[in-house]
């Protein structure tokens, strides 16, 4: 499947994600779509500008959870770092990590949207 191959190329552990769902590929695809929508409504960049760190922590935590469960590894790892940096009061470092992973994140979202439409 083109979507899965593209995602694998972007570092997503598709096999793990599908296995977590007992091999249900269709459900996995559907959840990827939900993920793309969710992550857009959980955009944390503006919160950084407003220094609303508790809000960011909550959102980053939520993204980390769903990215992990769908095995979208690059995003999962990035947000794991962001959450732990925020928890140890290093928001500037967290912001740097966000900057670094945003292009990868956008690439993955684009790939999902392109293939699902």
């Amino acid at each position: 499947m083109k979507l899965f191959d593209d995602l694998k190329a972007l570092g997503v552990n598709v096999n793990d994600g599908v296995n977590r769902l007992g091999g249900n590929e269709n459900l996995y695809k559907r959840l990827l779509g939900t993920f793309a929508k969710t992550i857009k409504s959980y955009d944390i960049q503006p919160d950084f500008d407003e220094e609303n760190y508790s809000e960011i922590t909550e959102k980053a935590h939520a993204i980390k959870g769903i990215a992990g469960n769908l095995s979208i590894t690059p995003i999962y790892e990035g947000y794991t770092q962001i959450v732990s940096l925020l928890r140890s009061s290093e928001p500037m470092h967290a912001k740097e990590v966000l900057k670094r992973i945003l292009p990868i994140q956008n690439g993955i979202i684009e790939c999902i949207e392109k293939n699902l439409n």
Partner: peptide, 13 residues
């Protein structure tokens, strides 16, 4: 769970 994705995955399991 407040995140739908997590709920659906657990429900599937």
């Amino acid at each position: 769970d407040d995140m739908e994705i997590n709920r659906i995955i657990l429900a599937e399991i």
